[in-house]
């Protein structure tokens, strides 16, 4: 389930019901949130546990892998 490659999350904002479950389950430290009270979408997540994707009631969180060269830019 878990991959060590950092990921950047994307949220389907139309499907998102603003329930907050993704943030509640997220093991990141304070501040890994978006302006819409979801997990952050503007910076890579290096834990990449994907629990937020699993908990989402409407399955509207997806991710792309961020490879290190790109992440450093």
């Amino acid at each position: 389930m878990s991959s060590k490659t950092p990921v950047l999350f994307q949220i389907g904002w139309n499907a998102c019901i603003n329930c907050g479950a993704c943030v509640a389950i997220c093991p990141q430290e304070a501040g890994f949130i978006s302006d819409f009270d979801t997990i952050a979408v503007d910076r890579p997540c290096d834990i990449a546990c994907m629990l937020c994707e699993d908990i989402c009631p409407v399955t509207t969180i997806t991710h792309t892998e961020v490879h290190s060269a790109k992440a450093k830019k």
């Binding site: 509640a24 389950i25 997220c26 629990l51 699993d54 908990i55 409407v58």
Partner: peptide, 11 residues
């Protein structure tokens, strides 16, 4: 944060 086994995903 809550364990995945203990957070119900509700709709």
């Amino acid at each position: 944060h809550i364990k995945i086994t203990e957070l119900a995903s509700c709709l």
